[in-house]
């Protein structure tokens, strides 16, 4: 991955990389207009990911600017007198998506990124997903490791609150790891059945 031309990952920079990648994946599946893509995105990512339609329009414009998508004004299907912009992937789009799948996403919204990738992953991405999931687990383990241990003796209210906070972090990270492990398992079982 070190040999990748930085030009090719330029489009991933900035905020909302997961959504940009996911949108690109959706475009590669089937071209669509902004509203359509926003709906599809929301359906893929699930209820917990509050997708803002305006954001989707903005991200599509960015994709067009980086040369991964083109838009054409086309009449609406139910009302031919009115038109809307329909986005199509460019030739570079597929390679860009593969690269995105292999790219470690910034730490903060890690899982969101994975979730976004999962939502639009192609079958040939399975192996990349597994790697990403493992990397994510490692990330979570390292985060957990950073949490200082309790001495088990704290009798003060403050100590109690700190223990509870610690617990919150562990519980969250444990949940993340569980989800990731289960996801790997599902993918592996799927691959095994295909063999």
């Amino acid at each position: 991955m070190a040999s990748v031309n930085p030009e090719k990952t330029r489009w991933m920079r900035g905020p909302s990389t997961p959504l940009r990648g996911a949108l690109l994946g959706l475009l590669l599946e089937r071209p669509g207009h902004g509203g359509d893509l926003a709906n599809r995105l929301a359906a893929r990512l699930g209820e917990t990911w509050r997708v803002d339609t305006n954001d989707v329009y903005r991200l599509l414009e960015q994709l067009e600017k980086t040369g991964l998508a083109v838009s054409r004004d086309e009449p609406k299907r139910n009302n031919h007198r009115r038109t809307h912009l329909v986005y199509y992937p460019t030739e570079e789009a597929s390679e860009a998506l593969t690269l995105w799948m292999e790219t470690l996403l910034p730490r903060e919204p890690v899982r969101l990124g994975l979730q976004a990738k999962l939502s639009v992953a192609r079958e040939q991405d399975a192996h990349r997903l597994l790697q990403a999931l493992k990397a994510y687990e490692r990330e979570c383990l390292m985060l957990a490791q950073l949490v200082g241990p309790t001495d088990g003796r704290g009798r003060s209210w403050t100590a109690l609150c700190m223990d509870c906070t610690r617990d919150a972090v562990y519980t969250q990270l444990q949940g993340e790891i569980d989800w990731s492990q289960r996801t790997r398992r599902r993918i592996n079982e799927f691959l095994e059945q295909r063999r």
Binding site: L141, A144, V147, G148, P149, T150, Y170, L173
Partner: peptide
């Protein structure tokens, strides 16, 4: 995971 707290390697 809480059982692991304070250990060197996770």
């Amino acid at each position: 995971m809480t059982a692991l707290q304070g250990l060197g390697v996770f």
